[in-house]
C-alpha cells in the first residue's frame, strides 16, 4: 500500500507540474478555438437582436458568398506566388552570402534588413514604389520610355504587386535559417566533392539541397502559415481592392469582424482558416518527413 500511495503521489506531483502550462494552453489556445467554433453556429447578436442558434446557416451563407470564394482563390495564388519563390530566393541568397565575399557582413545585413522593418513601414515604402506617375517604378520605367502603369489600381496586377512585396519581405528572413544550416554543414563535404570532380551545381543538387531539407520543411511551414497570416500590407496598400482583387482570407476575416461587426460569420471564416492550416501542416509533416534526412 505505501508503494501505491507513493505512486499516486508521484502522479499528482507530475500533473501539478504540468498544470501551469496546461492551464495557459487551454485558456489561450484551446478555449478560443472551441469558442470560435461554437460562435460560428450562432447568428451575430446585437443588443436589440440577441444571438440565435442557426446550425450551419453561417456555413451555407459562406458557400454562397462570392467574396469568400474570391479571397480563397486570391489566397491560393498568393501562396503559390510567394512560397516557392521566396524559399528559392532565400536558399540562393544564403548560398551566395555563405561564401567568402568582400563586405560579407554588409551584404548579409542588407538582405536581412527587410525582415526587421515592420510590415506597415515596408508597405508605406512600397506604396510609393507602385504609385503611378510619381512612384519609383514608373519613374524608372519612364527613363526607358515606358508609359506609366497603375500597378495597384488594376485587378490584373495588384495581387502580383502584393506578392512581390511579400517575397521581398520574407526571403531575407528565411535566408537566415538557411545560412545557419549551411554554416553547420562541415566544409570537408564540399572539399570531398570538389576532389571527386563534382561541380558547384552537382554538389548543390546532390548534397547541399538534400541536407537543407529539414530547414526547408521548417521554412516551408512558416511560409505557408505566413501566406495566410501576412496581411498587414493590405491595410496600407489596397484595403483588399480594387473590388477584392487583392483581398486575402485573414483580411476578409478582419473586415467582417471589425468593420461589419459580424462576429459569427467572422468565426465561421476563422474555422475554415484553422482547418485549412491544420490540413496543410499535417500534410507537410506526414509527406515530407519521410523524405527528409535529419542528422
Amino acid at each position: 500500500m505505501p508503494d501505491r500511495t507513493r505512486l499516486v503521489g508521484n502522479a499528482a506531483y507530475g500533473w501539478l507540474l504540468l498544470l501551469p502550462a496546461a492551464v495557459l494552453l487551454a485558456a489561450f489556445t484551446h478555449y478560443p478555438a472551441v469558442a470560435t467554433l461554437a460562435q460560428s453556429l450562432f447568428t451575430s447578436g446585437t443588443a436589440l437582436r440577441p444571438a440565435e442558434f442557426t446550425g450551419l446557416d453561417n456555413y451555407r451563407f459562406m458557400l454562397e458568398d462570392e467574396v469568400f470564394w474570391r479571397v480563397l482563390e486570391n489566397n491560393a495564388w498568393y501562396a503559390i506566388g510567394t512560397i516557392p519563390i521566396s524559399i528559392a530566393l532565400a536558399m540562393l541568397m544564403a548560398v551566395w552570402v555563405n561564401r567568402r565575399l568582400p563586405l560579407r557582413a554588409f551584404v548579409r545585413m542588407s538582405y536581412f534588413t527587410p525582415t526587421v522593418l515592420p510590415m506597415i513601414a515596408v508597405a508605406n515604402i512600397w506604396l510609393f514604389f507602385y504609385t503611378p506617375e510619381i512612384g519609383l517604378i514608373d519613374q524608372i520605367a519612364a527613363g526607358f520610355g515606358i508609359g506609366s502603369h497603375n500597378w495597384l489600381g488594376n485587378p490584373d496586377t495588384v495581387l502580383g504587386c502584393i506578392i512581390v512585396l511579400t517575397i521581398w519581405k520574407e526571403a531575407g528572413f528565411f535566408m537566415i535559417f538557411y545560412l545557419a544550416a549551411l554554416q553547420s554543414l562541415p566544409p570537408e563535404l564540399e572539399e570531398a566533392a570538389r576532389l571527386e570532380g563534382a561541380g558547384h551545381w552537382h554538389f548543390f543538387r546532390r548534397v547541399t539541397f538534400p541536407l537543407l531539407m529539414p530547414t526547408t520543411l521548417f521554412v516551408l511551414i512558416n511560409a505557408v502559415i505566413n501566406s495566410f497570416k501576412l496581411v498587414d500590407q493590405l491595410f496600407i496598400l489596397t484595403k483588399g481592392g480594387p473590388d477584392n482583387a487583392s483581398a486575402l482570407l485573414l483580411y476578409y476575416i478582419y473586415e467582417v469582424a471589425f468593420s461589419f461587426f459580424d462576429q459569427a460569420y467572422a468565426s465561421t471564416l476563422t474555422v475554415v482558416l484553422l482547418a485549412v492550416l491544420a490540413i496543410i501542416a499535417i500534410g507537410q509533416f506526414v509527406i515530407l518527413d519521410k523524405r527528409i534526412h535529419y542528422r
Binding site: 504609385t131 506617375e133 510619381i134 497603375n150 488594376n154
Partner: peptide, 19 residues
C-alpha cells in the same frame, strides 16, 4: 483621368507634384 483605381493615400502627393 487615369483608368483603374486611384489611391487615396498618395493622391495628395500626385497633386502636389503636379501630376
Amino acid at each position: 483621368m487615369p483608368s483603374g483605381t486611384i489611391e487615396w493615400g498618395t493622391l495628395r502627393k500626385n497633386f502636389l507634384e503636379a501630376r
